[in-house]
Amino acid sequence: MKITGYRTLTAQHHWRRAIGDVNGHIVEAVTEVPIVIVETDSGIEGVGIGSHADLDRLFPAIEGEDPRGVSALFDRMLAQVFKSGHAGATYGGVASLDAALWDLKAKAADEPLWRLLGGRDRFVPAYASGLDIALDDEELATLYAEFAERGFVAGKLKGGLDFDADVRRLGILADALAANTARPGLMLDANESWQVKQAVRYVSALEEHVDLIWVEEPLRRWDAVGHARLSTAIRAAVATGENLTGVDQFRSLFEAGAPDVVQAGAVWGVSHMQRLALASAARDLPISPVGYNANPAVAHVMTAVPNHLTTELQAFDFADGVLVDHEFVDGGIVLGDEPGSGISIDEVVIEGARRGDGWANPAGPHMRPVRAGLRVVLDGVER
């Protein structure tokens, strides 16, 4: 089997609600979902989701190769962009091709990816995460009640700007998830919006009201020393890493003794998730994938590593034309038996369902506000 080419598609995920975080939000959100399909001379095709960045530069590293050598091909792609570097957006292109190759390898073996990777149990524990900062209290309660109906016992709130609102809204999450447990698991995601002492003061005050499992991305992603300082000052675990592009970028965090929970963005693909999980396991640290809906293939990896804690689930559906072989029950993800990563693409539906330009709001959460980390009073009012 040889790799002969690739093609790209862009689907749209219609969230049917506002989504965002402390940095911004979009109303009636629609997000673009880049898809890469890798073609082979055998007729089998592999599907990868994540990014279209630098595909033309990366593809020569795998063209004509046997896709079943996917781990070596991952390294060939990194070597292909050695001088300019693989960090940032380029890593997204690597990850999408990588996910497609793993899909091909499992399809060629006629096995689901979780089985090919060595998984024993198809169940992947998960937590609810509504990207919910723009929802009012009633909408918030309704959303997490829907997660509770499927057995979820833990949830993550987007916050970090308005202390009183965060206390109240974490209570709403707890009430909704209490349908399944007397002690719901609660997390707060601040999306890199604080300085170290801001984080210490804010989380310490929250902990007088709420028992937090973790605080996520409290500081800038590269602040290894700051994350370590914060971890020693609060009870909650410190979780970060989703925006680091490459296992090499975790080196300074590991050396500094941070984070407590290692996170990896689903958009960075299967090999990244696998390698980071094992690097974390060597340090007795748990791993938690972020953004399952952005690339469902990563859940397969979690069945085959020793340190998976829980996976972020943001919605019960996917982009139009993207079908995934799984179920959401018992507070987690139950992977199916379809060969490959379980992702199938309906190209006709994708083209027919496109409406508008997707993620077009310049004030959305993908842009960092000018005053982020420089507010004197974190009450949602200061200008």
Rank of each mutant, 00 (worst) to 15 (best):
Q12S: 08
I35G: 05
R68K: 13
E45H: 12
K2R: 15
H308Q: 12
A315M: 09
R183S: 15
I213C: 01
H308K: 08
T240W: 01
G130I: 03
L219T: 07
I345V: 15
T8C: 14
A360C: 12
Q314S: 06
K107P: 06
W114M: 08
S71R: 09
G130R: 04
R355M: 08
R16T: 05
D189K: 01
L131K: 04
R169Q: 08
V334L: 10
G118S: 06
V324F: 05
V262P: 05
S341P: 07
V200D: 09
W194N: 09
D211A: 11
D41P: 01
G92D: 11
L244K: 03
L101T: 05
G130C: 09
D162L: 10
D121S: 11
G64Y: 05
P60F: 14
V27D: 14
Q274W: 15
L116W: 02
T10M: 13
G246F: 12
G151H: 08
I44R: 01
S71C: 04
D260M: 02
G48R: 10
H300V: 15
S84Y: 12
M187K: 03
W15A: 02
V225C: 03
R251D: 11
E216I: 07
L78K: 13
Q12R: 11
D41N: 09
F123P: 06
